[in-house]
Amino acid sequence: MGENPNMDTSQAEEIVKTVTYNVLRYDPDKDSKPRMQRFQVPVPKGRTVLEGLIYIKENLDGSLTWRSSCRMGVCGSCGMFINGLPRLACQTQILDLNADEIQIKPLPNYDILKDLVPDLKPLLEKHKYIHPNLVRREGKEIDGLTGEFFQTPKELENYIQFTFCIKCGLCLAACPTVATDANYLGPQALAQTFRYNTDTRDEGNQFRFDLIDTADGTTKCHFAGACSDVCPKGVDPAFAIQLLKRDMLLHKLHIKRKEKGVPILGKVTDGKRMKGVPDAPEKTV
């Protein structure tokens, strides 16, 4: 390790304290049930829980397994149950936890594949179930797109918050309904239902309402709000689900119905230029 100057930790920042990592271990080939294992991890200022795990893998136990990729809260791979809350390991600094012992378990409410790796398949299947894509009555509008859809910044504001979902699955780990119920669609999929239904380019409202208006849909959300408490991207799934419930009611009562999506704009030049807006620069490639 020391040979690579980039990986040299000998000149690293001063070690502030040493914490105990209490990590869940489960090897599907050997163990019948999980066990806990302790490691001592030195902590310089700013070290994240994920970096602590990397330290263990490099220095203490190479067999420790988890899933991570971008280490900056974008890919959503490193969701773990850290000291009583589902969190992203890469966004949680050890010193912020204010504890001498850090307990790390895989996200609850998912099957454990190995050590800290949860099986996120149910999450992704439920996400796919609600058709997370623009649905248009005329399919050719999507397949052979000839121009952009017309959408104002104000219309974008109504759903943009919910587009930041990174499918890390923390919300399902926090949800009390999911704790017992494998069939419940869950905060992630329902929040995405709202996101696409609210998109003015989409025409799939009725279609998605039919998909989720079952015993496993919105009626199983009781606004415990835990999903929103743990969401690392501010998606606020509980908020989206309550708004979805309102939209479902208004749709049913014929008060607010989105019958048609916005039209496709013609060529870029078809739009009317506002006064004082200069021409686009010449193409460079």
Binding site: P28, N83, D111, V178, G225
Partner: peptide, 23 residues
């Protein structure tokens, strides 16, 4: 094949972590 079921069960209705008051 041998995944470990990590669902919290009914205990998860009552507790399960340091969540907000609403839960």
């Amino acid at each position: 094949k041998n995944k470990f079921n990590n669902r919290l069960g009914i205990w998860g209705w009552l507790s399960g972590g340091r969540y907000g008051l609403e839960r």
